[in-house]
Amino acid sequence: MLRIILTMAFALITTVASAGTIGEDGLHKQDWFALTFRDIAEDIETAAADGKRLALVFEQRGCIYCAKMHEELLSDPEVADYLQEHFLIVQYNMFGDEEVTDLDGDVLTEKTAARKWGYVFTPTIVFLPAEVPANSISVSKAAVATMPGAFGKWTFLNMFKWVFDRGYEGDEHFQKYHARIIEQLRAEGRLK
C-alpha cells in the first residue's frame, strides 16, 4: 500500500513540475521561457542568432485557459521539445507593469502594450518575423501570425511548425496545412 501511495505521489509531483510553477505574478512559468529585457527587436535578433523564432505569450493571473495550456500542452514532451528547439518564448502579463520596447521604439508597460497591440484574450501567442522589420512598425503590424486562446495539441503544435517553416509566406493557409498534417498523422496511425 505504501508503494502505491509513493508511486501516486511521485506521479503527482512529476505532473505538477512538468506543468510549470506559478510565479509571484500569478502566472504559470516554464523554466525554459526566456527572460529578456523585453526589447522586441533585440529579442528577434537573439532568437535568430540561435536559429529560432520569437513568440510572445500573453497570460493573466487566474486564466483557466492559460493553466490548461501549461498543464496539457507545454507539459507534453513532444510540444515542449519542439518549442524549446525552435522558439524563443517570452511571457507577458496582460496586466503587468514591466517595461516593453515596441518595434517602433515606443516604451510601454506590458498592459499598455497589450492594449496598443489589441490583445484582449489570454493566452494569446504572437509570432514575430524571422528578421527585424526594416521600417518602424508596431508588434501588431509586424506579427506574422497570432493564436488567441488555448487549442488542442495538434492545432497548437502545428501553428508553431507552420510559423517556423514560414508557411505564412506561401499559398497554403494554416487551416489547410493543419488539415493536411492531421491526415498524415491519421495515415501513420498516430491519430484516430
Rank of each mutant, 00 (worst) to 15 (best):
K161D: 12
Q175P: 08
A113T: 05
G96Y: 09
E131V: 05
A142Y: 04
A142K: 05
F58W: 10
T155C: 00
W32I: 07
F33E: 03
H70V: 01
F87P: 00
D97H: 05
S136N: 12
A143V: 05
E169S: 11
M69K: 04
L157G: 09
Q184L: 14
Q84M: 14
E172N: 01
L6W: 10
A11R: 05
P133G: 09
D31T: 11
F156G: 06
Q84E: 14
Q84S: 11
G152Y: 06
I13H: 08
L88G: 01
V120F: 15
I40M: 12
V107A: 03
A34H: 05
A48I: 04
V120R: 14
D97V: 00
A11P: 00
A113F: 13
I5C: 07
H86R: 15
E98K: 10
T15L: 14
F127R: 06
H178L: 06
C66E: 07
L103N: 10
L54A: 09
A49R: 13
F156L: 08
A49M: 12
W154S: 04
H173L: 06
D102L: 10
A55D: 01
E183C: 00
I13N: 05
G118T: 09
R186E: 15
I13C: 13
V57W: 14
N158W: 08
T146H: 05
L12F: 12
L191D: 07
A48L: 04
T7Y: 02
F164N: 08
S138C: 09
V132T: 07
A134K: 06
A145K: 10
I64S: 11
H28C: 08
H70L: 01
D102S: 13
F156Q: 08
T15N: 02
G51V: 05
I182V: 15
P148A: 15
I44A: 06
G152R: 09
F58P: 01
M8T: 13
A134Q: 07
A17R: 12
